[in-house]
Amino acid sequence: MRTLLVGALLLGAAGHGRAQGNLEIDTPAIAALRAAMQQRHQQIAAHYDAGAVGLTADGLVAIRDAGQVPLSQRGRLSALVAAENRDREALYREIARANGHPEWREQVQATFAQRWIDKARRGWWVQRPDKGWAQR
């Protein structure tokens, strides 16, 4: 009886340890999203630099000043932003799912939102919690 209980305690302690490790981000779905976003960044970075696109407070990107882009290229810009946001949404969802907790999606998104903004290059535009834009 006592051995059983001690065993249960030890098992419990082992379970605790697992929760403090890393999040699983090495799934094929997540790898594909990371690769797509990395490739897209080469096109979108110039728009961050110009201020045409900014980083939103909720972990996505948005057109901040379309005037920075010639009229003829605005359709392309919108498509670029839409594609980036689709991948970002999918990324947050996939990370939550890969870790067995789909309900974590919003918290994953909030974590990314903060880190994208923290790591934004100087000169890029980021959204404040009140939705106003600020330049890094």
Binding site: L23, H41, V108, T111, F112
Partner: peptide, 18 residues
Amino acid sequence: FPAAAAEKAADRIIDGVW
């Protein structure tokens, strides 16, 4: 929610994408 682990994961992914 494992906030610290999530932050670490976010950093790894953002460093790669950017």
